[in-house]
């Protein structure tokens, strides 16, 4: 409980710090949104009018307060370039990115955990070492290249077995669920497999560290086979660590997701963000960056709370060791 409260307080502090960082970083920005919006032949008067309409002529603390106040009311401002509200823009793009991320995570966990277990429990040493090699090499493949290879194999029109679409998202969006889902297959496999290799490596490391544990020995003494003991007891005891790793994988997957979105021409959050950064769309970038980062902070918070819930030992430790238990002492093997 004490951990929860402390964690929540620091979450709020981190959010505030983050908003300051985003705000400050964007004010050092060379280039003026107002003059971009007004076009190349604008008169200074028109630029000034736009500046005052957007609130850019006020002092920085005033602007910061305005922005933060707007955020608290759910008003994220209006994009200077497209004229749409930032909230609707984020919503439209998240409809592509969120399913992509969730599906990829499912693929990553679905492939990574069983194969990671197999890399420890398989009978023949050869299978074990092949699986270990797959885990390491798989984690070393750049998402961009992995995606390209998949396009060359399965992409409609270019691939050897051209059966899947490799470019774009249906215009109808999720109103055409079948087409939408099919267009996400290759991107999902790309990010899912790359992240899955990481999960596989962690699962393997976790299980290996469980091999000599008392808990597994106890379970085997009670009549379980080694395999059963490792899967039912060892894996359950590693669950807390695996949740943390999955959370971090999820956060780092976003780089891969952005690359893959761009490669497969999907109108996702990554495409939106890159586009707005390129256009120097101050208002939009500010809210988008903050919102995304806040999302990941929240995710980190949830993962840590889940980690604590899954591992009752941590609760006791924090009582007398001052947050000692919130770390994950998992060496990457």
């Amino acid at each position: 409980m004490r951990y929860l409260i402390r964690r929540l307080i620091w979450f709020a502090v981190a959010l505030l710090g983050l908003s300051l960082l985003v705000f400050a970083a964007l004010r050092i920005l060379p280039g003026d949104v107002a003059s971009v919006m007004a076009g190349t032949n604008a008169t200074p008067a028109r630029i000034a009018a736009i500046r005052s309409r957007m609130g850019l002529d006020r002092s920085y603390p005033q602007q910061y307060a305005d922005w933060l106040g707007g955020l608290l009311h759910g008003n994220m401002g209006v994009s200077a370039i497209s004229g749409r509200t930032v909230a609707s823009q984020i919503g439209a793009h998240a409809a592509v990115t969120l399913p992509l991320i969730v599906l990829s995570l499912l693929v990553a966990l679905g492939v990574g955990i069983p194969m990671g277990c197999q890399a420890v429990l398989a009978g023949s040493p050869r299978v074990r070492s092949v699986l270990h090699t797959i885990a390491i090499v798989g984690g070393a493949v750049p998402a961009l290249w992995g995606g390209l290879l998949l396009i060359m194999l399965f992409g409609r029109g270019v691939g050897l077995i051209g059966i899947l679409p490799s470019q774009g998202f249906p215009d109808a969006g999720w109103h055409a669920p079948r087409a939408a889902l099919i267009s996400l297959i290759l991107p999902t496999i790309t990010t899912g497999l790359v992240a899955g290799a990481g999960i596989m490596r962690y699962t393997r490391a976790c299980l290996i560290s469980m091999e000599d544990s008392d808990a597994v020995a106890m379970a085997m003494a009670c009549g379980m086979t080694r395999r059963q003991a490792m899967l039912r007891v060892g894996l359950r005891l590693s669950a807390a660590q695996l949740v943390s790793v999955a959370g971090l994988t999820f956060a780092q997957m976003i780089t891969g997701v952005m690359v893959v979105e761009s490669l497969f021409n999907l109108p996702g959050l990554g495409a939106m963000l890159i586009n707005d950064v390129g256009n120097r769309d101050l208002i939009a970038v500010q809210s988008e960056l903050f919102l995304l980062a806040a999302f990941f902070l929240l995710l980190g918070l949830l993962v840590d709370l889940m980690h604590h819930a899954l591992d009752p030992r941590l609760g006791e430790q924090t009582q007398h060791a001052g947050g000692e238990g919130s770390t994950h002492d998992l060496g990457i093997r």
Binding site: R7, W10, F11, A14, A251, G300
Partner: peptide, 12 residues
């Protein structure tokens, strides 16, 4: 500890 726990989730 808590600051590191919070910031670690921000993607590269």
């Amino acid at each position: 500890v808590v600051v590191v726990d919070a910031l670690i989730a921000i993607p590269t």
